[in-house]
């Protein structure tokens, strides 16, 4: 009798303990920037692992995916009118701004997740840029941080796409993440959150390596590691092209 009771209690308690974990895989963990790279698409596939079946009256499941580029120290400048012309007058250093940031969700972010967690886990465009501890938390810095977000949204580097994740039977989900053509190389991460009742119940993260490859890699390394040789090589190409052009058209004139 007591055993039956405890089993019943356990069944009721199980969903509350939220024994759900997320399992994720990506269509690719590596993005190669080659000479003809013009953007790419990464598919995020996920499944929810449960030890116990779902209770009937449980709140619906939601998913949020954040894909983020490397954090960079960034300088933001503001123009002001001085002596009749518009020039950069103020500048603010932002310690950690991701080079790329996109959020995909199953529904409107504010409806599916509480604001504290949005901030804490950097989910959503408003939280793409995290103020650092030693930053002065004044309104001015906030307006500069907003400017980064605004400019990068225009450039297609930051985005928020609510409701694009399709969730099947509260268990399987997938989303396609578009990477733009003007991508910077570095270590990207995909963070996946399972959300129930506006709270995060499980999370996972996967790394994506974005690297220049082939000719791009070779030229970039040469330019930075053997700058003089690269410079001389650029000149050589220029001289050969110049000579070639002059010769070809001399022949054509005949």
């Amino acid at each position: 009798m007591i055993r039956k009771l405890s089993l019943a209690l356990a069944l009721v308690a199980a969903p509350l303990a939220a024994e759900e974990t997320v399992v994720v895989d990506l269509s690719q963990n590596r993005v190669a920037i080659t000479a003809n790279y013009s953007g790419s698409e990464i598919f995020v596939f996920g499944a929810v692992k449960r030890d116990t079946p779902l209770a009937e009256d449980i709140a619906p499941l939601d998913v949020a995916i954040v894909v983020e580029g490397p954090l960079e120290h960034t300088t933001v400048r503001k123009k002001d009118k001085a002596l009749g012309i518009w020039i950069n007058t103020e500048s603010v250093e932002i310690d950690a701004a991701p080079s790329f940031f996109t959020v995909a969700t199953t529904g409107p972010l504010d409806e599916i997740l509480n604001v504290e967690d949005q901030h804490k886990y950097a989910i959503g465009l408003d939280h793409a840029i995290r103020p650092q501890e030693h930053d002065e938390p004044n309104a001015d810095v906030a307006s500069f941080a907003e400017a980064i977000t605004r400019i990068r949204v225009d450039e297609g580097l930051y985005s928020e796409r609510e409701g694009i994740i399709s969730l099947t039977s509260e268990t399987l989900f997938n989303a396609s993440i578009q990477l733009p053509a003007n991508l910077v190389e570095g270590d990207y991460t995909a963070r996946i959150y399972l959300i129930r009742d506006r709270n995060i119940v499980s999370d996972s993260s996967v790394a994506i390596a974005v690297r220049k490859e082939g000719l791009e890699r070779w030229l970039y390394n040469l330019a930075h590691e053997q700058a003089l040789i690269y410079g001389l090589l650029s000149l050589l190409v220029a001289l050969v092209a110049g000579y070639g052009a002059s010769e070809i058209f001399r022949l054509l004139k005949r």
Binding site: H73, T74, T75, V76, R77, K78, K79, D80, K81, G84, I85, W86, I87, N88, S91, E93, F144, A147, I148, R150, I151, R152
Partner: peptide
């Protein structure tokens, strides 16, 4: 470009310091 008010007053600099 210098005389008219730009549509975006902010710009992102490359690198830092």
């Amino acid at each position: 470009d210098l005389l008219l008010m730009p549509s975006e007053l902010f710009s992102i600099g490359t690198g830092g310091h």
